[in-house]
Design a protein around this nucleic acid. Structure first.
Lengths: 333, 333
DNA sequence: TTGTAGGCGTTATCAG
DNA sequence: CTGATAACGCCTACAA
């Protein structure tokens, strides 16, 4: 592997000049530059990214922390990030944090100057300890689908979105509206999600009571949601409409309803959440969450923070939108 | 940021000793090691990954090249890779090659010792030029869902899988079986896919003629497939069964058939391909391609190649399996 | 078992 | 405009 030294020798110039020429510095005569470039081409020179990063103390790499590669949603976010990344020279290294136990270790290793120039956390809330270190260092970090008062973040307006879904059902005449939600943060399942908050608020605003057992928080899978449907339907006063925290869960509900020979939406209304590609083909009424845009804007935010360290955190909230299709209608009877 | 030098000073030992202690070398007395570790902890020392990589000429990073983050399948492959990666200390940097034009540049940059210790190509066939350089260097590389005689690879048995699907339809009584496929490699759409080969072979083996217009190769989307259905149904002799190259396309076919009030499978049989999570909930008869396993084995292969440079390429082909659900039945009449 | 010195490939600084 | 030279932080002989 040829080094810059070889190139310099081959071109008959000094090492510094070769470096400048290769990096497009203006302080080098055209003829010299041409000689250096020719030499580099002749030798098949490829500059060492590592040595460069080491010397410049800047890696041109961004680290992305995700809970896992499990969910399709991640793909959409990554796709949005990719779009923002494309015109830049940055690479992304993706690291999964499957276990809560790894979290702190990974945080410590990632969010430290040297390894990556910045970090993007998706759906993971940082520990207070990390936040403290980060804000002290002014280390570039952006949260996606998570938030902290001291850090920049991009999220969807989950409360408003779910409230809108509730309102839609109420307008159709429903009074017994249940929720089958999932946990926002896989690592802090105890805290109530933001969708849940919107659900409660809107119910209260309409003067409806939150019926016991109407809030089912399950795993993020169709099967778990199907089980929740069983629970809901065996309630003394079963719901006529069910809102779900994800399209995947809505899918499970749909499937379970079909197996019970319940017609949707005649016998039971179902609303999904997120609007994955497939929702359209299922005719699922759902909430469209701008996942790709969240990824794009989050990356964009990190990119600008890289150049001009932020004074104060930017917190963006993106609007969701109810997509009315065929799984939600007036209540039976 | 504390360096190893600081740690050494703090612990009152030499720099080399500190390095050895930190790296778990056996040639260091327990008491010294303890002092060094304590000093490191006290200083909050984090070793510089870059400097380490620079010095060892080994990055502990693997590069993954993918055409895009567009497809859900990628997620499954990544998930499998993650599983194989978990017990190792390797990081993965993912790079997308959206444009054919970027391909060579990216190849040149990635597949060169220094940046990453090895490369995994997903669904992308390398150029001959690259192969030549790679085999010369003995640079660790593994192809996933792509193949080359001189390189290690993991693929699914697409010919056999599609042949099996054809056979299934024939056994149900179908004689007019069409194919709505997609391109294997986004960058070389001209060459016929492997599924297509299996389709033709099996048709021929059963003594069935390949009817004109029966092979529709479309984009990898439900809408494109829906359009293909229109074309197929307007043929003088329309098919009674349609095999598709992806579940996404099968979904489009299903949707288009429903819009035309065709019952599936009574009026028309449809077979998907890949068996994405959702296929189950749609009751889609499909071919299960072990995507996650492809990712896992591919990564495993790369990992072993890293330690013991391979003499000759390993080429693994994983078996697919027909999953019979509800979208394929006997032909009408 | 420990300390010292050399080197990894670049970039940046500073005279010329 | 150009050429030496000093970092960058770590690892690894080699010598003690």
């Amino acid at each position: 592997m040829a080094t810059i030294k070889d190139v310099a020798r081959e071109a008959g110039v000094g090492l510094g000049t070769a470096s400048r020429a290769l990096n497009g510095s203006p302080d080098v005569s055209p003829s010299t530059r041409a000689r250096v470039l020719a030499a580099a081409a002749a030798l098949g020179y490829q500059r060492s990214a590592i040595a460069r990063a080491f010397s410049r103390r800047r890696t041109n790499t961004l680290e992305i922390l995700i809970p896992s590669f499990r969910h399709y949603l991640m793909m959409e976010i990554l796709r949005g990030m990719e779009a923002a990344l494309e015109p830049t020279g940055y690479s992304i290294v993706i690291r999964t944090i499957e276990q809560l136990a790894e979290r702190d270790r990974v945080f410590a290793a990632c969010c430290t100057r040297g390894r990556a120039d910045g970090v993007l956390l998706i759906g993971i809330t940082p520990t207070e300890e990390l936040v403290e270190r980060l804000t002290g260092d002014a280390f570039p970090i952006v949260l996606l689908e998570a938030a902290h008062p001291l850090l920049s973040s991009v999220t969807a307006d989950h409360e408003a979105a779910m409230a809108g879904a509730v309102r839609h059902c109420i307008e159709l005449g429903h009074r017994r509206i249940a929720l089958v939600d999932r946990y926002d943060d896989p690592f802090t399942p105890q805290q109530p999600g933001r969708r849940q908050g919107g659900y409660r608020q809107e119910l209260a605003a309409a003067g409806l009571e939150l019926l016991p057992g109407y809030e089912q928080v399950t795993e993020f899978t169709p099967d778990a949601a199907a089980a929740a449907l069983d629970t809901l339907l065996s309630l003394p006063v079963p719901p006529t409409a069910i809102l779900s925290g994800s399209d995947l869960q809505a899918l499970g509900l749909l499937d379970a309803a079909r197996r019970r020979s319940l017609r949707v939406p005649e016998d039971l209304s179902i609303v999904g959440y997120t609007d994955i590609d497939l929702a359209r083909y299922l005719g699922l009424t759902t909430v469209r969450v701008p996942m790709r845009e969240i990824g794009r804007q989050g990356m964009q935010m990190l990119l600008t923070a890289l150049d001009q360290p932020e004074d104060s955190p930017t917190r963006v909230q993106l609007a969701s939108e109810l997509v009315v299709r065929g799984t939600c209608g007036p209540p039976p009877g």
